[in-house]
């Protein structure tokens, strides 16, 4: 096995994840190759360091600090909810007022202009006027009454 092949398997050799055959071959190479052995020592130190790199002692004030933060965040949450409700109500009120103003403004645009009011009778023809006046004066006559009187 040459240096390149050893380098490709070094981390797995350190982690003891190779077959017995590969392990023995690499062990033999490391005994004779000082540069590969130096690399092995450095990388092994790094990997071993990770195994020990842990926080064992917890800060005794951890829970107290956490409790304070939770209380603070709860207060802020309530504040934010109140703010949200307040702003929502304000936004709705503003929207309603705006809608009323827009309604009033648009209503003004469509106000009835007296100049353009047309006398309905003005455009009627003489014949129509005559017919209308005649029909309104005539009292309605029941058809059955007419039939009865004819028979008599």
């Amino acid at each position: 096995m040459n240096c390149k092949e050893v380098e490709n398997k070094l981390i797995f050799y350190i982690e003891d994840e190779l077959s017995l055959e590969f392990r023995e071959t690499i062990s033999a190479h490391l005994k004779t190759c000082s540069s590969c052995n130096a690399l092995y020592e450095k990388i092994k130190a790094d990997i071993d360091f990770l195994h020990t790199d842990k926080i064992e002692q917890i800060n005794p004030g951890f829970y107290q600090k956490l409790e304070q933060k939770i209380k603070k965040s709860e207060k802020e949450q309530i504040k934010n909810t109140v703010k949200q409700v307040y702003f929502q109500a304000l936004a709705y009120a503003a929207a309603i007022i705006l809608a009323v103003f827009i309604g009033v403004a648009l209503g003004k645009e469509y106000q009835v202009n007296e100049e353009y009011v047309v006398d309905e009778n003005e455009n009627l023809s003489e014949f129509q006027l005559f017919a209308e006046s005649y029909s309104t004066d005539m009292s309605s006559e029941d058809i059955y009454e007419v039939i009865i009187t004819d028979n008599e």
């Binding site: 380098e7 070094l10 981390i11 690399l39 450095k42």
Partner: peptide, 14 residues
């Protein structure tokens, strides 16, 4: 991840 770490560490130490 191990392969990449190995590569980076070897490059660094070389």
């Amino acid at each position: 991840a191990k392969k990449n770490l190995q590569k980076k560490l070897i490059e660094h130490y070389k």
